[in-house]
Design a protein around this nucleic acid. Structure first.
Lengths: 376, 376
DNA sequence: CTGAAAGCGCTTACAG
DNA sequence: CTGAAAGCGCTTACAG
């Protein structure tokens, strides 16, 4: 009904005014002088008829579709995608925009090899085969007002000549030339917060369970871990285990190595929840109870893992939903300021991406250091 | 560039023909008689100028936006949403459509209480507060050609006066009056397949680990389990454990009860991967190795859990991506047949939803029955 | 304070 | 085989 066949012309006729006036009133056009009585009449008539504007007509005429395009990598394989979509869609709807979504396939794997970019560096003839290019272009062809690009793992995106002529914001990635606004999670700070919680509980021997994989996220988490320990006057390099790959089994193997050492740590900071899951198994096999004999902190807050482990895993949550909302609001701000003033696009927020804080989610895996004697 | 400022008029001028002809050629209008030479000239000119149609203008004129609306429940809290979006978007793009996504919040919880419907049964004044209504209406206001509604847990949706005047397809749910096409997963068959794998391995004492929660999915899985056992001449009611809630901890408690019984089963069919995770812990505590002493099959194929458990969990995968694709294709078929013929909408596919098969994903948790003596 | 008119970029009868 | 013209439903200068 709200998108029924009643148009602005019907409202105008019923209210006894011109379509111009109806348009002015319903859109609250700033400089339109319309008497309060007329406004009221138009409003009630529109409501009575169940008038809803045809967004297509409006978009065509005003050259603004009110639609934001979200290009998102590996929507089905990363559990984060849903939260980004949630945050982005809510924020968009709250400001009167809609979200069009395209999936960018296979970036998790592609990343391991060459670094694909927002705009590929290959010859034009191969362009169509670049999934990023293809996805972004299908959005552009739909007249979206702006684009959000969400990378599944943080990395640097080549994008030379912006995705098109529309503004864009990056999530979980930065542009190689820093020309695009970007929002990332403060994983460094999140890791530090995790360590600080361990320190606060009294731990002084804190091990690190990480993966050998070269990855920006992991590096930030390790740095956050090391720096937090150093600030506390402790050495972070002692008990480190590197899992061959970021799954629980490799985490298990690495954790066993750490815990079998001469002076094993009383707590473990794990660079992912999967690794932490492996640490749980290692602890169980070694007869160490969590958190009685060993405290564990994970990273990622994957509900499915963290809440199902026993005891529940205390872990660092990445603010995906907030990142989605931030990116949308940043994009809309740019769109609307550009529309209001013919002035140049506002500064993109500087060369550095905005960092949103990671929250420590406390469940049951952190306790006091084990003071007692352990079974030999 | 493809959505640049070059319009059909530019192509027409350059090619020395009318806009009508350009439109006819580029859209392959069936009854348009255009000479091959002219066609060729138009095509090359369009390509040379980098012409891309303005979808907004096309949509306004043809009354078809080429956009499908996907209303999806609990996108951030269920791990399935991403796969549905993936399948739906891929299928849509392959047929020239785009996907607009809105999130329907809080249905996982709402479901426990009253059953919300596609169209709520409350007074009109409260409508705006119904999240389903609000989401679907925001899609309709955007002139989508059709709607996909994806429920997070299968249930019956009240929808009396269809979401609007556009066709709709349901995913993981059915309409109360069966008036809408719907696609669901064949969870009954999936459960049966899991049991059959266990039977094939030689198991005859197969326990059931389920939850007390009243839920359509769970009921189907239980029925599939029971019927498969019965077909094999076995009794499925013997070793059953009901977890208070569907998480790993309750699964653990229930599994301990089952396994502590006098004549414990040699295999366990679990109605979810989370429950299976609990079963792993129970087995470990009882000194039972998987699959040496106990075989386990889960349901859901949650990568994060199933692949991280040790050994990997053999489990039933729900075809979310295929459901998304099926629903999109069904919707587009309806849209396009309605456009071609003025004839009535084709039958909705009968009163029953289409059931897509669930695949058994084999990892390492199923083995031969334990023939040997167990530690007392 | 209000309205007549142009036009966004297409598609679609319709005429020839 | 091809084209002139109307019109989808709005917004936006512009005139009064």
């Amino acid at each position: 009904m709200s998108s029924g066949s009643v148009g602005i012309r019907d409202v105008a006729r019923e209210a006894g005014v011109s379509v111009t006036t109806v348009s002015h009133v319903l859109n609250d056009v700033p400089f339109a002088r319309v008497s309060p009585e007329t406004r009221e009449k138009v409003r009630t008539t529109a409501a009575r008829l169940g008038y809803g504007p045809n967004r297509l007509a409006r978009a065509l005429r005003s050259r603004r579709s009110g639609v934001l395009g979200l290009a998102i990598e590996d929507v089905a394989t990363t559990p984060h995608a849903g939260r980004i979509i949630l945050g982005a869609e809510q924020a968009a709807r709250a400001r009167g925009y809609a979200l069009m979504v395209v999936n960018i396939l296979g970036q998790a794997q592609a990343e391991a090899g060459t670094q694909p970019g927002l705009k590929s560096c290959r010859e034009p003839s191969q362009r169509a085969t670049d999934p990023i290019q293809a996805g972004v272009e299908s959005l552009l062809a739909r007249q979206v007002d702006g684009i959000l690009y969400a990378a599944s793992h943080r990395r640097v995106l080549q994008h030379s000549a912006t995705p098109g002529k529309v503004p864009a914001v990056l999530l979980g990635a930065v542009a190689a030339d820093r020309s695009l606004p970007a929002v990332v999670a403060d994983e460094y700070g999140g890791a530090a917060a995790a360590v600080e919680a361990l320190l606060a509980a009294g731990h002084t021997r804190i091990g690190l369970l990480t993966t050998a994989e070269e990855n920006h996220s992991t590096r930030q988490r390790i740095r956050g871990f090391r720096d937090a320990l150093q600030r506390a006057g402790l050495d972070g390099a002692s008990a480190t285990g590197e899992a061959a790959s970021p799954d629980a089994f490799c985490g298990y193997a690495a954790a066993r190595r750490i815990l079998a050492a001469a002076n094993p740590p009383s707590a473990l900071f794990c660079c992912s929840d999967s690794l932490a899951m492996g640490a749980y198994r290692a602890a169980a096999e070694l007869g160490l109870s969590i958190p009685g004999n060993l405290s564990v902190v994970g990273f990622g807050d994957e509900e499915l893992l963290a809440a199902n482990l026993h005891p529940g895993l205390t872990t660092v949550a990445v603010p995906h939903s907030e990142m989605g909302a931030w990116a949308v609001n940043r994009l809309i701000d740019e769109l609307e300021s550009a529309a209001a003033e013919a002035g140049p696009t506002p500064p993109t927020g500087g060369p550095d991406p905005v960092r949103l804080g990671c929250r420590l989610v406390t469940r049951g895996s952190v306790g006091l250091p084990d003071t007692g004697k352990r079974q030999p």
